[in-house]
Design a protein around this nucleic acid. Structure first.
Lengths: 357, 357
DNA sequence: CACAAATCCGTGCGCGCACACAAAGATAAG
DNA sequence: CTTATCTTTGTGTGCGCGCACGGATTTGTG
């Protein structure tokens, strides 16, 4: 009864194989200096039993230290990246007893020069692993190659670059999340013939793959299921509330038949707050991500659906993937699409009240 | 730079306080035999620094062993309880190095005598913690009292009994998940005036709180939002496919205007497969839980929505709550409602492809 | 055949902690 | 002041493992 609890340990293996623990250790970590005969004896035993080392004892005894670097955009509180960082920090805490240090470096979002600079410093530190969201494809790919060359495993979060070879990717399937938005729109407004699509854009900014792919998915779904539907596109700007208000006013004024609106960035609240202000509550708005202002708008019904992608889990699992690979020698799955969580007024509270880790 | 990695240890505290490690240990675990003077010295240091013990070293050194018992219904593969057990086993694996043994005992679902018998044996084993889904209220409450008296912490999963005092509860808010079903139904079929509600029932069975509360939530939502809507209730039986088919045939034949159907148990596939067979694809069906046959029906569009509640997470967190409480001395949240995940054809694959732990 | 070099292997220490045990100090009783 | 008793404190051992060092065995060389 009791010995269910005590796992097989190296000492047991040594006895079974008729060698010393040192030899078993050398075989397990195959660091040489073992004769064929002993190696075979040990390997035979290993094949028979199912040895799983006590990773805690192992970490305790190990003198190796690890340093990971997470490179993410500087963010404001309540932002999408805030959640990502939350997950990174949670993972970091759990790993301190394994001698892992996680450093977070920030770059200016949409600014490619800033991204490059931060990545350079990250590489200079020669960390054991790096976590980053891809930026401009060509540039990111260059860094990916450098990391490959330096033998530094790296994790992509948020979005993905096909050409690179990260240890793992954690993020949404952007295109299909766009289709999902389309599907939700048609469920909510099966009859509608006109829909508004808003994008944020700023001159000189790096466009987001993520967002353009969502849009592509949405458009393709609409084309397929309701070809007759007209899509009105409009562009908003960061930090230009008056201008944005004008843009929205124009589009909704000119096209009274619009019954639905979508916004593929995480700033749906900009549109939501406009709809609220002008009491356009016949318009179904669909957005992405659980920013605080988005949630508020979901609660007051100016947003109908939010599609979420568990950013905190992306950060958490990203870091964990590095430690699984480097420390615990576990196989890690390469492509990890996040669930596309559908949040509405009715279920948001339970979602928020729950830690997704 | 490097010493960020090395945390404060007991030895450090001992030096700072000018006592030996033994004394610090005695203060930390307050097991007496410490003079006021030394205690104060140590506590002063503890207040200044933020000591977090290395739980792995601690577990390694500790001679304590723990035994948990999980009491769950016997299930068939692919069932809801299969997922729960999956989570329990995952947690158990992670805890073996902490000298935790988890034993799973099965009772016959809906059979109160069987439940009692299994609970008796569980109690006789005097485990350190018990995890169980409440059965009949009065009976479960009695066992709860016994466990309280014996000082055995217990976890409720799946559903909840207000009167008892479990260490924690993990499960859905049944009533509100019923409301959610109502909301989804009205989104999908805003015009419908007739809806069918199916229940499973068997003579002598213990009725499920879970299910009746979901129904209550659904009905109340419909009453509030669309009073005119007529709800047709019908009862199905386990293992009576022909009889069930007759019941369904009758209800849909007699009420040609029915455009929606709901089923609050996890066996939506029974209705779904009927709808598929008779090509009643104008009927929107809403069900619960990701049984394999439900998923198949979601994929072939005979189920429109499935509401899921992360059963594997319930099992996992339930066991983890016991170890958090008993071993790691962490505070555990008492009421933990699971997110109400909304699954449709478009997002099911990503949900299934992802481990929710 | 002696001795050096190379290969192989066992032992011992320490990671941070829990816990037992013995030592030392304080107090009481004679 | 001595001895017995109780209180308080320090030290030592081992949990399972990684790792280094030194010893044992084999092989090679003159």
């Amino acid at each position: 009864m009791k010995n269910i609890l005590s796992k097989i340990k190296i000492k047991d293996i040594a006895e079974m194989a008729g060698v010393s623990v040192g030899t078993v250790d050398r075989v397990l970590h195959n660091r040489g200096d073992v004769s064929m005969k002993s190696r075979e004896k040990v390997e035979k035993v290993l094949k028979e039993i199912n040895y799983t080392p006590n990773i805690y004892a192992s970490a305790l005894a190990s003198k190796k230290t690890f340093s990971f670097i997470a490179v993410i955009p500087a963010y404001k509180k309540g932002d999408y990246w805030d959640k990502i960082e939350e997950g990174i920090i949670k993972a970091a805490r759990e790993l301190t007893d394994f001698r892992v240090k996680v450093e977070i470096l920030y770059f200016e979002q949409y600014n490619i020069a800033s991204f490059c600079k931060v990545m350079e410093t990250a590489l200079e530190e020669r960390p054991d692993g790096i976590l980053l969201p891809p930026s401009l494809k060509s540039v990111t790919f260059e860094f990916a190659c450098k990391m490959d060359a330096a033998g530094i495993p790296y994790i992509f979060i948020d979005s993905r670059i096909e050409e690179a070879h990260p240890l793992a990717y954690y993020g949404q399937h952007s295109y299909l999340s766009g289709c999902l938005a389309g599907k939700l729109m048609l469920t909510e407004k099966p009859q509608t013939e006109e829909i508004a699509i808003f994008s944020f854009y700023h001159l000189g900014q790096v466009p987001s793959n993520q967002i353009s792919q969502r849009m592509a998915g949405f458009v393709s779904h609409m084309m397929e299921k309701k070809e007759s539907c007209r899509l009105h596109r409009a562009t908003l700007e960061l930090d230009s509330p008056e201008k944005n208000e004008q843009v929205m006013y124009d589009i909704f004024e000119k096209n009274k038949n619009i019954e639905g609106a979508v916004i593929f960035s995480s700033r749906a609240y900009v549109v939501a707050e406009f709809l609220k202000k002008y009491k356009l509550n016949h318009i179904t708005l669909i957005g992405y991500d659980l920013l605080e202002r988005n949630i508020a708008s979901l609660r007051n019904d100016s947003i109908a659906y939010l599609i979420a992608q568990r950013p905190e889990v992306q950060g958490y699992r990203g870091i964990k993937a590095l430690s699984d690979h480097l420390i615990f020698k576990k196989q890690v799955e390469t492509i990890n699409y996040m669930p596309m969580d559908i949040l509405i007024h009715k279920n948001i509270d339970f979602y928020l009240g729950f830690a997704n880790y």
